[in-house]
Design a protein around this nucleic acid. Structure first.
Length: 477
RNA sequence: GGCGGCGUAGCCAAGUGGUCUAAGGCAGAGGUUUGCAAAACCUCCAGUCACCAGUUCGAAUCUGGUCGCCGCCUCCA
């Protein structure tokens, strides 16, 4: 009998969109939790609405890891579909060239948003054969049919259709549904698995030769195939945006469940949208803001990350620069506290700090384990900040206490990824100015001290006088 | 029209039957500290949870209704 490792002691639970209930999280396999996230379509660099989904997925992943399970996360990249093909056409570039450019930009954004790398970022273009296989099986088993060289899923054959979204097929407004003219579906509600290539597409070499002719895949089969190829027939957690529930996820379920008899995901997590002036952020609405836009305005990746994380994942998040600025201020509060803790080099220690830190860590993780209650988690964090600040002001915090607090902050930062970096400022010129200013202050020559401050400020550096001497840092974060 | 969700202070936002005389953040007011500046600390800032009716010993939390807003059903994602 092997001394089995205790199952992680957590009360991790998520609201599963499928059951619409809070469900305790029970992994399929304890050794590895599997996670699939609907990634970007790389027709254009995504806006922060998409990144919210990505950051939420990152939060889910890190929270599951904090609870003690290793996670294998896969995020797809949709690089063959109407949008990418149209965008390449418009840009006058080969499809692959365009999608590769956008993919690289996307990966760079992930870096600036401190998103943990997924195990794989499969691209649809590399999985066409998997999709053909799945589709063939669907046809063989009578779930799909070919019509005029396109292949459609027959929704009528899947009795569970609509369970995730609560959509009643009979009530779906057909008039408003997909371009009825351009398709030859038996039922307008059927969805496309493979679409016959247009002549233009064939000329550009975009079609894939199959026994149905030259075709290209539809969106829904892509995710189904990639998830299956990399993570098997069922994953623990599938993350997407609420706007994907219908029809995308519904269709994915239809495909997967028809083939395997299993639901493709045990837990469905859907993130809320980013809105602008009450409407959804989208390129079409002309209100899209990219990570690059924000960087150009001087915001940092961690500030954007904090903004995207600061509201419960299921709530809509209203974007505005005022709201972003408020999020930055909150982050400053944390930064300042961390700076103070790091600057502390002496002082005796006080026993009760252990209690505060312990309470904090417990409150923080319990909040996250409860369906990712970031608001409560941040509340715990800021309560600790206040406690630390107070004691700092009273001189009742020693170096070892500070280290203990920092250690806890780093531990929770495994989930938040918001801690400021250690600032290594090796600007000799500024250092000399600061020393000079301090010397002037010591002899009471404040006019000279202020002149030096102005000079230092001109270098973009802020000096703060503390009881322990002057401290300085770059103005922007 | 169908389906899903939301409505808590100036703003953002937790809390979903008693510990709520309602967390936390931003903004604001006063004070302490400070040569200046920055930060910090202290105090204050919802008699109330969209509205109405009900259930209950007890409701922001449950039920019914009303109003308002958002999303999906089409582009966008």
């Amino acid at each position: 009998m092997v001394a089995d490792v205790e199952p992680p002691e957590t009360h991790l639970r998520f609201l599963d969109s499928f059951t619409r209930k809070l469900e305790p999280f029970v992994p399929i396999k304890r050794e590895e939790v599997t996670m699939y996230t609907c990634g970007p379509t790389v027709h254009a660099v995504p806006h922060i609405g998409l990144y919210r989904r990505v950051v939420v997925a990152d939060l889910v992943r890190r929270t599951v890891e904090l609870s003690g399970y290793p996670v294998k996360h896969v995020m797809n990249i949709t690089d063959v579909d109407d949008r990418t093909i149209d965008a390449a056409e418009e840009a006058g570039k080969p499809l692959m060239e365009l999608t590769e450019e956008v993919r690289v930009a996307f990966m760079a954004d992930l870096e600036t948003l401190r998103v943990k790398h997924a195990a794989h970022y499969p691209q649809a273009s590399a999985h066409i054969n998997d999709m053909v296989d799945l589709t063939s099986k669907l046809v063989d088993r009578g779930f799909a049919y070919e019509k005029l060289k396109s292949v459609y899923f027959d929704i009528g054959k899947f009795s569970d259709y609509g369970k995730l979204s609560g959509m009643d097929l009979e009530k779906v407004q057909l008039g408003a549904t997909v371009d009825l003219d351009r398709y030859e579906k038996d039922d307008p509600r059927d969805f496309t698995l493979f679409k016959r290539s247009t002549l233009g597409e064939i000329k550009k070499g975009l079609g894939h030769r199959t026994h149905w002719g030259s075709v290209r895949p539809g969106w829904h089969i892509e995710c189904a195939a990639m998830a299956m190829a990399h993570l098997g027939e069922e994953v623990d957690i599938h993350v997407g945006g609420v706007d994907l529930i219908f029809p995308h996820h519904e269709n994915e379920i239809a495909i997967c469940q028809s083939l395997t008899g299993k639901r493709p995901a045990h837990t469905w997590i859907h993130s809320g949208l980013v809105t602008v002036d009450r409407g959804k952020m989208s390129r079409a609405a002309g209100n899209a803001v990219t990570v690059q836009d924000l960087l150009e305005r001087g915001y940092t990746g961690r500030q954007v990350r904090h903004f995207l994380l600061s509201t419960h994942y299921r709530q809509p998040l209203r974007f505005s620069y005022a709201a972003l600025d408020a999020a930055c201020e909150a982050l400053n509060r944390l930064d300042e506290c961390v700076r103070n803790l790091r600057a502390l080099t002496k002082g005796s220690s006080y026993e009760d700090i252990e209690r505060y830190v312990g309470d904090f860590e417990h409150a923080f993780s319990q909040a996250l384990f409860d369906d990712l209650n970031v608001s409560a988690a941040f509340a715990a964090l800021f309560q600790l900040v206040r406690c630390v600040n107070r004691r700092l002001a009273q001189g009742r915090l020693g170096k070892s206490d500070a280290d203990r607090v920092l250690e806890a902050l780093y531990r929770v930062d495994a989930v938040l990824a918001l801690m400021p970096g250690e600032e290594a400022m090796d600007d000799q010129h500024v250092a000399a100015l600061v020393r000079e200013r301090e010397a002037a202050r010591e002899v009471g020559d404040y006019a000279r001290a202020d002149a030096l401050r102005a000079e230092i400020t001109a270098q973009g550096v802020l000096v703060e006088d503390t009881p322990q001497g002057p401290r300085y840092r770059r103005q922007s974060n």
